[in-house]
């Protein structure tokens, strides 16, 4: 049986977050940051509002946010470990990084699911 530790789970979240952020962030930035404000595409506001109000859209957005936050947590944890060579404070760093990701996820859930 494989040795059980949380590391594989943290890495899976990191990996999923990296893929989702790389695939969706440029699309969202292009649409919301360039294409819509510059008028390259025209979208009916009521239609956009309908899409964004749909539960499925919100769940997908929440998934992207949570995965990207855990990607950040894992990357930042190793940046502190190796980049700044603070591995001796491993427990505090781990708790801080993934704790921030959990808080951010809770905030994203509150915004996306409760604020309807």
């Amino acid at each position: 049986m494989p040795h059980r530790s949380a590391e594989p789970l943290a890495w899976l979240a990191f990996s999923a977050g990296g893929v989702l952020a790389a695939v969706f962030a440029p699309v969202v930035l292009f649409l919301a940051g360039l294409a819509l404000p510059l008028g390259w595409i025209s979208a009916d506001h009521a239609h956009l509002d309908d899409v964004l109000s749909h539960l499925l859209t919100r769940i997908v957005l929440l998934g992207i946010c949570v995965a990207a936050l855990f990607h950040f947590a894992h990357r930042f944890r190793y940046t502190l470990y190796d980049g700044l060579q603070l591995a001796r404070y491993g427990t505090v760093i781990t708790a801080g990084c993934y704790g921030l990701a959990m808080l951010g996820s809770a905030a994203a859930a509150a915004v996306l699911l409760l604020n309807r």
Binding site: P2, L12, S15
Partner: peptide, 9 residues
Amino acid sequence: KLTAAIETL
């Protein structure tokens, strides 16, 4: 890593 993570799951 992917193989190992899936085996752990």
